[in-house]
Write a protein that binds this DNA or RNA. Structure first.
Lengths: 131, 131
DNA sequence: GTTTTTGCAAAGTATTTGCAAATGG
DNA sequence: CCATTTGCAAATACTTTGCAAAAAC
């Protein structure tokens, strides 16, 4: 948890609210427009701390750069393979299904599930129209 | 797909069969014991080609080094947070649940799902006994 | 004033790649 | 022989870190 409120941290929070699941360098580029002195290390450092404290979410998509999410709500990420846009999915039914998957896995492996990492990929309706 | 069968590729396949979801450097270290001339680049290159051709599976666990799996069967990976062992989960029920998740996501986001990336983390029964 | 945070640059991981030499068929 | 694969080293991509200076309270 941070002790002091730096201008940089506020700018990062602001960027997280405005940008859609941004990477560290997207946030960096965005802030640089109005505050060219910001350093990429500071962005990474703050994002790391915020993710650690649970203030934000770190999303790791395969071997691409990590993305960050101010929405810490329980939800699933869906990426369009064409345009790269990230969609959020949530809902009671989804939650129930995941609990059932947990149970099925616990039964077959004996592992008591505590965390899940998942994201889905496909083609969004917008991109489907254009083909 | 590879055109020729090199000794190195055979050694990599052999290591994949003997080791449990190994990383590239685990395979490299293993082969080096009997063939010290092997180079890490060659291991990475072959694993990449084999994964590309569908001969093996590349598993990306968060920001850890990728692991590789000769089992190309449809299954889910479960990692014990304590000992790091990787378990495989599969079954008809699991498959059905995942189809239902796909449907739920397609309905709420409009994205037509083509791929899923997921792994689960928890404590295996062995580690639970010891605490 | 003292502690935290910054900017910068250097280091750290994991992985890929260019190229001349070696190898396979 | 000739195309493919190797070993090596350098390059790349993303992220973390050490440290002196600046900022916060």
């Amino acid at each position: 948890m941070s002790k002091r409120y730096s201008a940089q941290k506020m700018m990062i929070e602001d960027a997280l609210m405005r940008l859609d699941h941004p990477t560290a360098s997207e946030i960096y580029e965005d802030i640089k427009k109005t505050y060219p002195n910001i350093s990429l290390g500071t962005v990474y450092r703050n994002l790391g701390l915020m993710a650690e404290s649970g203030e934000i979410l770190r999303i790791t998509f395969g071997n691409q750069p990590d993305r960050f999410d101010i929405n810490t709500h329980d939800h699933i990420h869906v990426i369009c393979k064409k345009c790269g846009e990230v969609f959020d999915a949530e809902g009671k039914r989804l939650k129930e299904l995941i609990v059932e998957i947990d149970e099925s896995i616990e039964e077959s492996t004996g592992v008591h599930i505590e965390n899940r990492t998942m994201y889905f990929q496909g083609i969004c309706s917008n991109c489907r129209e254009q083909s």
